[in-house]
């Protein structure tokens, strides 16, 4: 499966010739919490299959998050209807809302804020209409907690494991995150996030294979591909995985909506851009072991580097 062929719309993540962990968030120019890409229908089918068959690993919530979930429903629907009026619309008559997804030809009437409006929770409902994974962080008693989320396409983490955890506990496994003081600074940044002023950032990693659903729970199914990477197959097998992450303060509950839109691009597509090839080669060669280990690249980094070097030397643009 090739998820992205259009290089121009790929959210290329790199700047400069080195990479380190940082809070690389920037204020959003167009405040949209979700996007609709050409892969919409394909990704929605995959997402719904996952939600239906693996509910525990894809959806978790604590009971006090319902008001925050409704805020997410409102934000997502308003953004979809405003940005993609040909694909989505909403009609509001007081608390009687009708949401129309014209791509999937689904119309849903519901009572906004009402209990048992849907067969499932509000966050679960709206997540069936967007490609993004949707995470709700609640700010309570001076800290941030992951209190609800729909997560189908995680980059090797587990929603069920992280539910109810504090921001710093969730990020504790990142090497150097605490030692460099990044955990404090990013937590403070998030806690000062203000409504009306959303932020976004890109995060990246490499993966062997092209699965979007690389949850920790299914590592046994996709992790072993890492051992099969050779310089001959790296271009096709290895993908760069970029998450476009967006942060919105939810004013009613003072919670934070964190959306993740995951993009995959094969290395052979990446290196067809000569500048990207050179820059990515520089960054990967220089990347220190604690980062390659955590991103799960160590096993096949050398094979990828050999592949990139050959491409550079041959000067060939595939």
């Amino acid at each position: 499966m090739k998820w992205i062929n259009n290089l121009e719309s790929f959210p290329y993540p790199f700047k400069g010739s080195t990479y380190r962990y940082s809070n690389n968030s920037i204020p959003m120019k167009t405040p949209l919490c979700v996007e609709v890409t050409p892969d919409y229908i394909e990704e929605m089918q995959l997402k719904r299959t996952l939600l239906n068959h693996h509910a525990e690993r894809c959806y978790q919530s604590l009971p006090h998050t319902i008001t925050g979930q409704w805020e997410i429903v409102e934000l997502v629907i308003d953004h979809l209807a405003a940005q993609y009026p040909d694909q989505f619309s909403v009609e509001k008559k007081g608390s009687k809302w009708t949401f129309n997804n014209k791509i999937l030809e689904e119309k849903q009437e519901f009572t906004f804020g009402g209990e048992s409006t849907f067969p499932e929770e509000p966050l679960a409902f709206i997540s069936r209409h967007v490609q993004e994974d949707l995470i709700l962080m609640m700010q309570r008693d001076g800290d941030l907690y992951l209190d609800a989320g729909q997560l189908c396409f995680p980059a090797n983490w587990s929603l069920a494991f992280n539910l109810g955890m504090k921001f710093k506990c969730i990020h504790h496994p990142i090497p150097g995150f605490k030692e460099e003081g990044l955990d404090d600074r990013i937590l403070q940044f998030l806690m000062r996030l203000e409504a009306g002023n959303p932020w976004e950032r890109k995060n990246w990693s490499l993966m062997a294979g092209d699965r979007l659903d690389t949850s920790l729970e299914t590592f046994d199914q996709w992790g072993k591909l890492r051992k099969q990477v050779t310089k001959e197959n790296a271009g096709e097998l290895v993908h760069i995985r970029v998450e476009v992450q967006k942060l919105f303060r939810l004013p009613r509950t003072n919670g934070i909506l964190f959306t993740i839109n995951t993009h995959l691009l094969s290395l052979e597509n990446l290196v067809s851009n000569r500048e990207w090839l050179k820059q990515f080669h520089d960054i990967l060669s220089e990347l220190p072991p604690h980062i390659t280990d955590y991103k799960g690249i160590s096993l096949y980094k050398n094979e990828v580097l050999k592949y990139l070097s050959e491409k550079l030397e041959s000067g060939k643009v595939v």
């Binding site: 006090h64 309570r140 008693d141 203000e194 409504a195 004013p251 003072n254």
Partner: peptide, 13 residues
């Protein structure tokens, strides 16, 4: 006016 901000939230616990 700004969007609403909260530096004086209710305790959850």
């Amino acid at each position: 006016i700004s969007y609403p901000k909260n530096h004086f939230p209710l305790s959850f616990k």
